[in-house]
């Protein structure tokens, strides 16, 4: 068993007086491809926002290694987040910059690389995401799927230890989605990157996920933990989870 990378315990998240989820505990290990899944409106993206430091939980703790994330000062939270990369649902590329500048900005701010090296790194990351040659395009000039891949390139800019992906394959054609899955596996194996992925793309969940949490909108808590394939086989998996994993078809 590898060491835990992120661990949550007793986490509750609320918007004002509305409690979105309560008592969530989970553990993401190093080199995991951790899937956050569940029906729409169950708080998958919100849980990701808590992990990314954008939404403070009402109760409970998030530990990155030994660091108690939400109890530490903003500077330290930033230092933790600097080891992480994020792909937002819609890409969230900075619209006033070209793709190369988007990928290069974190490098420019956090490394002492020369302009030429930054450009080279940016081209490399874009090529890894399948966007070679698109360095000087603006986000508005490329398609939605390409924006998503450019967002992934930006998430990978600083060679992060942890990458958060919010619905990476939504809106991608099956082949691109497959390429993305392959890229994720490749990065996990070569650079030992840990992935936390919000998705309900079943093909991806089974192809790459080796650990998961299932959130339920009804009971507002986690119904299952563990490897998605094992969950499907296990006898004690809750019916709701099994139905989700089988697209509603009972075996």
């Amino acid at each position: 068993m590898s060491q835990p990378c992120i661990s949550l315990s007793g986490l509750s998240v609320a918007y004002g007086s509305f409690v979105l989820m309560r008592d969530i505990s989970m553990q993401v290990n190093k080199q995991d491809i951790f899937i956050i899944m569940g029906g729409s409106g169950c708080g998958k993206s919100t849980l990701l926002r808590v992990l990314m430091g954008l939404k403070e939980p009402a109760l409970g703790t998030v530990h990155y290694g030994d660091v108690n994330f939400w109890a530490s000062p903003p500077e330290q939270r930033q230092a933790v987040m600097r080891r992480a990369g994020v792909l937002f649902q819609s890409g969230a590329l900075w619209s006033s910059m070209t793709l190369a500048e988007n990928v290069g900005l974190p490098l420019q701010q956090y490394t002492s690389l020369s302009a030429q090296q930054i450009r080279e790194q940016a081209s490399l990351k874009l090529a890894m995401a399948g966007l070679a040659g698109f360095e000087d395009y603006y986000p508005s000039e490329i398609s939605g799927g390409m924006r998503k891949r450019a967002g992934l390139a930006r998430a990978l800019a600083l060679d992060p230890e942890i990458v958060f992906l919010d619905e990476p394959s939504a809106g991608l054609d099956p082949l691109s989605a497959r390429l993305l899955d392959d890229l994720i596996l490749e990065l996990r194996d070569t650079l030992s990157t840990t992935f936390v992925i919000v998705t309900h793309e079943l093909a991806s969940i089974f192809a790459i996920g080796n650990n998961s949490i299932f959130l339920d909108a009804e009971s507002r808590t986690a119904l299952a933990h563990g490897n998605p394939r094992a969950l499907l086989e296990a006898a004690d998996t809750k019916p709701l989870v099994r139905r989700f994993l089988l697209r509603g078809e009972e075996k």
Binding site: L54, A79, R82, V86, F88, W94, L105, P106, Q109
Partner: peptide, 8 residues
């Protein structure tokens, strides 16, 4: 938000 996650 993307700026914030990079610590900018």
């Amino acid at each position: 938000d993307a700026l914030a996650t990079f610590g900018f």
